[in-house]
């Protein structure tokens, strides 16, 4: 139950530090939305180059829980699907590989938005 805990902590923490530096050291118009978009795109590109895979092997959840891991899954899914079904896989692979995450985000997001009201 407690295996991989330290690697996840260190890799996850360091990935978040990159995000913090992006926000604090760039111009103020770089919002959390920009951080999330940069991480998902960056993760997809690093995944395509094969550079994110080692990070997942070392860090486990430390690399998959940050949004860059979501980008990595998208790219990995697209490449694997291209291998199996050709060019059509480029369109279907990414979304198929991340379908659980996307559906969970939409469904739980809706549920919680309806159930709760903002505290302000």
């Amino acid at each position: 139950m407690f295996e991989m805990i330290m690697p996840a902590f260190i890799v996850g923490g360091l990935i978040c530090v990159i995000g913090q530096l992006l926000m604090d050291l760039t111009k103020p118009a770089f919002t959390p939305a920009h951080v999330l978009v940069s991480f998902v795109t960056g993760g997809a590109i690093l995944g395509a180059l094969g550079w994110y895979e080692p990070l997942v092997k070392i860090g486990g959840a430390g690399a998959t829980i940050p949004l860059s891991g979501f980008g990595y899954s998208l790219a990995k899914g697209a490449m694997e699907a291209v291998g199996k079904q050709g060019i059509l896989g480029a369109l279907s692979g990414g979304v198929e590989a991340t379908a659980v995450g996307i559906a969970a985000a939409v469904f739980f997001g809706y549920l919680m938005s309806v159930a709760f009201s903002p505290k302000g």
């Binding site: 998902v40 795109t41 395509a48 998208l74 697209a78 490449m79 990414g94 809706y110």
Partner: peptide, 25 residues
């Protein structure tokens, strides 16, 4: 409003994965 931030994330994430898939092909 569910998609205020999630929208851009999905747009850029999915679009990147498609480009990656095409290049890989």
């Amino acid at each position: 409003k569910l998609f205020t931030v999630a929208g851009p994330v999905l747009v850029y994430g999915i679009a990147t994965s498609i480009v990656v898939g095409i290049v890989y092909f």
